[in-house]
Amino acid sequence: MSDKDLSPPRIAVVVPVKNEADNILPLLGEITAALSDRWPFEIVYVDDGSDDETPAVLAAAKRDFPQLRLVRHRESCGQSQAVATGVKAARAPYIATLDGDGQNDPADIPALFERFLSASESDRDLLLIAGFRQKRQDNGLRRLSSKVANGIRASLLNDATPDSGCGLKLFSRDAFLDMPRFNHMHRFLPALMIRRGGDVVSVRVNHRPRERGVSKYGLWNRLWVGIVDLFGVMWLQRRASVPIIDRRD
Rank of each mutant, 00 (worst) to 15 (best):
A61F: 02
V201T: 03
N139D: 15
S122T: 05
S146A: 13
H186P: 02
V200P: 05
A89R: 15
K18P: 01
L236E: 08
S122A: 14
D123T: 10
S36V: 14
F176S: 14
F41E: 01
R72L: 01
P209R: 06
V46H: 02
N150L: 12
T97N: 12
L27E: 12
H207F: 03
D105C: 07
G198N: 06
V233N: 06
A149R: 12
P180C: 04
D123F: 01
W235T: 11
S122C: 09
K135V: 08
D64W: 00
K88M: 07
F188Y: 14
G232M: 08
G49H: 05
R136L: 12
P55E: 06
G49E: 00
I43S: 11
I11S: 08
F41W: 08
P110A: 13
A89I: 14
A61E: 01
D37S: 14
S122P: 00
S215W: 12
R10I: 04
N139R: 14
D159R: 10
H73N: 15
V44M: 08
L68M: 03
D159T: 09
P26V: 01
L117C: 12
R124P: 12
R143C: 13
L68C: 04
D249L: 15
N23E: 10
L189E: 07
L177G: 04
R204P: 03
P26K: 01
R222S: 05
G102E: 01
V148H: 02
L144D: 12
L126G: 05
M1T: 08
N139H: 15
L156K: 11
R247G: 05
L126Y: 12
L25C: 06
N221Q: 15
A130K: 05
V228R: 15
L189S: 04
C166Y: 05
P243G: 07
E20T: 00
F132R: 11
R204M: 05
G232E: 13
R187T: 07
V233W: 02
R74K: 15
A34Y: 07
N23P: 01
N206W: 00
A60W: 02
I244H: 15
L144Q: 08
M185H: 15
D178W: 05
A160F: 11
C77E: 06
E53F: 01
L168Q: 13
V83M: 14
L126D: 11
R136S: 07
V225W: 11
L177R: 06
M1S: 09
F182V: 13
F113Q: 02
I24E: 01
P55M: 04
M185K: 10
G198I: 00
I24R: 00
S155R: 10
E211F: 00
